[in-house]
């Protein structure tokens, strides 16, 4: 009989404790649904690593998404990092990959360094500007994994 009571107590306790999990967040509840969206970026036929891909919505109230390409040029879009997926809709796409040339002096690139820095684009600069990149994409409700972009010199 005591064992039965103890078991009941255990069940009740488990239920009570499980109610103390992560609290709902009204901001998170208000977010739009996303669909998985991934693809690949190539530059002159070669996979482009470390490029920043930004999806700029064409709808005025749209929400953009972005990703970084991996060693195989592949990327997975995120609208609300760290969660994967982007909001379905039409997008203008910009892709940027920059590097910083070696500094002329032996300066360390420190914030206290008065030497100016110039960022140099590794791919044509037009791809970084949404209005000039001429790249666009549509993410369907069901998601997609064929957001492929072939960039040229």
């Amino acid at each position: 009989m005591y064992r039965a009571r103890a078991q009941e107590l255990l069940v009740v306790m488990t239920l009570v404790l499980s109610g103390c999990g992560e609290q709902a967040d009204h901001w998170k509840d208000a977010r739009p649904e996303t669909a998985p969206a991934s693809g690949m970026v190539t530059f002159d036929g070669e996979p482009l690593e470390g490029a920043v891909v930004v999806f700029q919505p064409t709808a005025p109230d749209g929400i953009g998404a972005s990703a970084l390409t991996d060693g195989e040029g592949k990327f997975e879009l995120r609208t609300f990092p760290p969660e994967l997926g982007a909001v379905p809709g039409k997008y203008a796409v910009s892709i940027m990959k920059t590097e910083m040339p070696k500094r002329p002096s032996s300066s360390a690139g420190n914030v206290d360094d008065p030497e100016p820095i110039h960022v140099v684009s590794v791919i044509p600069q037009k791809y970084a500007i949404p209005t000039q990149s001429d790249l666009s994409a549509e993410i369907p409700e069901s998601g997609t994994d064929t957001l492929d972009f072939e960039l040229k010199k």
């Binding site: 920043v52 891909v53 930004v54 999806f55 953009g64 998404a65 972005s66 990703a67 970084l68 995120r78 990092p81 910009s94 940027m96 970084a128 500007i129």
Partner: peptide, 9 residues
């Protein structure tokens, strides 16, 4: 070309 999404990537 700077946007918060580019930084988030």
């Amino acid at each position: 070309t700077a946007s918060p999404a580019a930084c988030a990537a």
